[in-house]
Amino acid sequence: MELTLNNGVMMPALGLGVFQSPPEQTTAAVQAALSAGYRHIDTAAAYGNEREVGEGIRRSGVDRTDVFIETKVWVSDYGYDQTLHAWDKSAGKLGVDYLDLLILHQPAPDRFEKTIAAYKALETLLADGRVRAIGVSNFMPHHLEQLLAATTVVPAVNQIELHPYFAQPAVQAADAENGILTQAWSPIGGITFYPGWGEDRRNVMEDRTIAGIGLAHGKSPAQVMLRWHLQQGRSAIPKSTNPGRIAENFDVFDFELRADDLAAIDALDTGVRSGPDPDEARLERFSMPIPEA
């Protein structure tokens, strides 16, 4: 299943995410995903595993032109010249001469002039053919409004925290209004049960409503959630390093949720964010340097 971006580029709707995948496990996870049928891999400079993603693609035997590679520029590389060089670093680690989708990892509103300069560098990379599409991540409607007022190319994608317990309808609406595709990170709610995020988190994988829908369709809760994203026109990038789970997460094209299933999942939204607030300045994290290729 492919989605058409606002510049006509086709992107596989379902991809493998590698956030928090240890470098030593990432190569095998990418190989397993491509073997299972995935053709979209999402990584980021800040994940520290771009090199291993590239190695996994090469070892898979799948032609590079058949794999949609998405990565992200980290905040410490924002600024026009710095972001042009961030492309060099990512492409060098991945071992490729172009990227399919390059996005800004955070809005970083405490230094938004650098964010704008970084996006203008993405526009240059797009015009030069070094990237096929450009976009953003974790941008709220007010960030999008500021960005669109200062730049020329509308982002193709906005990657945000999005799962049944936190669906961000206002962001989805702003994306749709501007012709931006919404892409879900933590699409099956992994962020809701990461350690260290608080004691009152509910694991969406254990939600009774989702389990009941899965039982009716002979599918797992993860498969139900991924199907929910796909049927509502979103891209999703579930993360796993387990080959069985990787394959299971891709096995979502042989069933369809009913309208009442979709409505029941929509009704689970709590409006409570589980991941970091994009409006919060995280000075130490934002200053993390990205190594050279």
Rank of each mutant, 00 (worst) to 15 (best):
L3V: 14
M10R: 15
M11H: 08
V18Y: 13
Q20W: 07
E24N: 11
Q31N: 14
A36M: 10
Y38I: 00
A45F: 01
A45L: 03
Y47L: 03
N49I: 03
V53H: 05
G56T: 02
S60K: 04
S60T: 02
G61P: 03
D63V: 13
W74V: 00
Y80I: 03
Y80Q: 05
D81F: 13
V96D: 00
V96K: 00
L101I: 02
Q106E: 13
R111S: 15
F112Y: 13
K114Q: 14
Y119W: 02
Y119L: 03
E123H: 09
D128A: 13
D128T: 11
R130V: 06
R130H: 12
V131T: 11
R132H: 07
G135P: 04
G135T: 02
S137R: 03
N138L: 01
L147C: 08
L148F: 07
A149H: 09
A150W: 00
T152N: 14
N158W: 01
N158F: 02
E161R: 08
P169E: 04
N178L: 09
G179K: 04
Q183I: 01
G189C: 09
I191H: 08
T192I: 03
T192A: 04
G198F: 01
G198I: 01
D207G: 12
I213A: 10
A216L: 13
S220F: 07
V224D: 12
V224M: 11
Q231N: 07
A236I: 02
T241G: 12
N242T: 15
I246E: 11
F250G: 05
F250P: 04
V252A: 07
A259I: 00
A263I: 11
G271Q: 10
G275E: 01
A281I: 02
P291Q: 07
